[in-house]
Simulated scan of single mutants.
Amino acid sequence: MNRKFQASYKFGLIGGAFCVISFVIFQLLGIDPTKLSMLFGYILIPVFLFIGIRYYRNEVNDGLLSFSEGMTAGFLIYSLIAAISGIGIWIILMISPSLYEEIKAQKIDLLQGNKELIVEQMGIESYDITYQSLLKMTTFDIATNDFIWKIIPGLFFTIIISIILRRNFK
Rank of each mutant, 00 (worst) to 15 (best):
D109Q: 13
I92F: 07
G70H: 04
L64S: 01
L65W: 00
G74A: 11
I118V: 03
M94W: 14
S96L: 08
F75D: 08
V60D: 11
I81D: 15
L99C: 08
I77Y: 14
G86D: 01
I77S: 12
S85Q: 14
I108V: 12
L117A: 07
Y100R: 05
N114I: 01
L99P: 09
L110N: 15
E69P: 10
K104S: 09
I77Q: 08
I77P: 11
I87Y: 05
L111C: 03
N61L: 07
S66H: 06
I91E: 11
L65M: 01
N114D: 01
P97R: 00
A73I: 02
G74I: 07
K115M: 04
I103G: 04
W90I: 07
K107G: 13
D62K: 13
I118P: 00
A73C: 10
L93P: 08
V60S: 08
F67C: 02
Y100V: 07
S98M: 02
W90G: 10
L93V: 03
L93F: 07
E69Q: 09
L80Y: 13
I84N: 05
G63W: 03
G86M: 04
T72N: 14
E101I: 11
G86S: 05
E101W: 12
S68C: 04
G86W: 02
I95Y: 06
V60Q: 11
L80F: 15
K115P: 01
L99G: 09
W90M: 13
A82L: 13
